[in-house]
Simulated assay, not measured.
Amino acid sequence: MRFAILGPLRMTGVGAPTVPKAPKQRQLLALLLLNANQVVPVGVCIKELWDDQPPDSALSTLQTYVLHLRRVLCGVPEIGTMRAAKQVLATAERGYRFSVPDGSLDLHLFDEGVRKARDALADGDDARGSALLARALDMWEGRALTGVQAGPVLRAHAAMLEEYRLSVQETRIEADLRLARHHELIGELSALATRHPTNENVRAQLMLALYRSGRQAHAVEAYQRLRRTLSADLGLDPSPRMRRFLQAMLENHPSLNSPAAAGAGAAGDRSA
C-alpha cells in the first residue's frame, strides 16, 4: 500500500488508486496522512473540517467520516476487512491515528532522501548530495495536497511543506553551483525567481549563475528587479548582504569566479 500527499492525494494498493470522493472525507484523510503514525486530536480534526463554526453534530459527523474512511480501506485488497481497517485507522487517546508502514508514504521517503543527501553534503560529497536531493524532489507531483479542500490546519501544513520543498531545492542548487553547473541552472533559477520575486537567496543564486556564465550585466539587472520589487511590494530595500554581494560582482571579486577554487566556498556563503 502506497500513500501520496506531495501532489494529488492518493492511496494505491494492488488495484487502482483509491481515495474518498467526498470533499470532507478527503480533507480528513489528508490531515491524518500528514500526521501519519501520530494521534490527531479530535479537536484538531474538527478545527480543520469546520474552522471556528463547527455544527452541533460535529463529533458525530466526524465519527461518520472515520467510518466511511475505514470502509474505503476495506476495499483495498491488502487490508480487506473492517478489523484490519480499524488497525490502520485507529481510535486512540481522544483522537485518531493513521498507521503507515515504513517506506509507504511519499513524505516520509522525501524526508529520508533529504537526510541522506545532507549527510553526503556534510561529508563534502556535493555530487552525491545533489543527486540524492534531485531524486527526493522528483517525488513531488505538483503542490502538496492538490485537489484537496483545505481548512486552516491543512493550509498551514501545505504552506510549510512548500517552504520545505523550496529550501531543499535551494540546497541542491547550492551544491550544483559548487559543481560548476551554473550554465544549466539559469533556466531553473529564472523560473524560481519569477515564482518567488522577493526571495533574496534565490535571487543571489541566479545572480551568481549569471555572473559565472559571463553575463554580469544580466546579473546586475536581476538585482535591480529584486530592488524594484521589494520597494514596490514591501517598501523595503535589499538586505546589506545582497548589497555586499552586488558590490563583489561589480568589483569582479576573485572568490566569485571558480567554484573549484578555495574561494568558491565564500561565494556559496554569499548566495546562501
Rank of each mutant, 00 (worst) to 15 (best):
R128V: 12
L59G: 08
A217V: 07
P23K: 07
A272E: 09
D119K: 12
D138H: 07
S57V: 01
A159G: 08
S239V: 01
W50S: 06
S231P: 01
P17G: 01
L250D: 09
A136D: 10
S239G: 07
D176Q: 15
R2S: 09
L154Q: 06
R10T: 05
L250I: 03
R195N: 13
D269H: 08
V66S: 05
S271R: 12
Q247M: 13
E163Y: 03
E174R: 11
E174L: 15
A122E: 13
A117V: 03
K47S: 13
P254K: 05
A272V: 00
R195I: 01
G263C: 07
T12L: 15
D237R: 12
R26W: 02
V44K: 11
W50K: 06
L132G: 08
A204H: 00
Q25E: 15
L105W: 02
G95N: 03
L230E: 06
G75H: 06
L49W: 02
A92Y: 05
L28Q: 02
T12W: 07
A219Y: 02
M160Q: 14
A175R: 01
P238A: 04
S104D: 13
L33A: 06
A85W: 00
M160T: 04
L179M: 11
G187A: 14
I186P: 14
V72A: 10
L9R: 01
Q87I: 03
L161Y: 09
A122L: 10
R178M: 15
R155C: 13
R227Y: 04
T171D: 15
R71T: 02
D125N: 12
Y211R: 08
S167D: 14
A30I: 02
E93I: 00
L145P: 04
D51R: 06
H68Y: 12
D233W: 04
P20G: 07
S239Y: 01
R2F: 09
A217F: 02
L161M: 15
G235D: 09
P54R: 09
A30P: 08
D126V: 03
I5H: 02
Q169G: 12
G265M: 12
V202I: 14
R97Q: 14
D233Q: 15
N35V: 00
E170P: 04
G7N: 01
P238M: 03
G129P: 10
A156W: 07
P17I: 00
L133D: 11
V220M: 10
A272H: 12
P197K: 05
D123M: 12
E174N: 09
N257K: 14
Y65F: 11
R128G: 12
D111T: 00
D237K: 12
R203E: 09
F245D: 13
Q38S: 11
T12Q: 15
R115I: 04
L34Q: 08
A144T: 05
L107V: 01
L256M: 10
L32H: 04
H157Q: 15
V66A: 10
T146V: 10
L121P: 08
T12M: 13
A180L: 13
K116S: 13
A131G: 10
V76E: 14
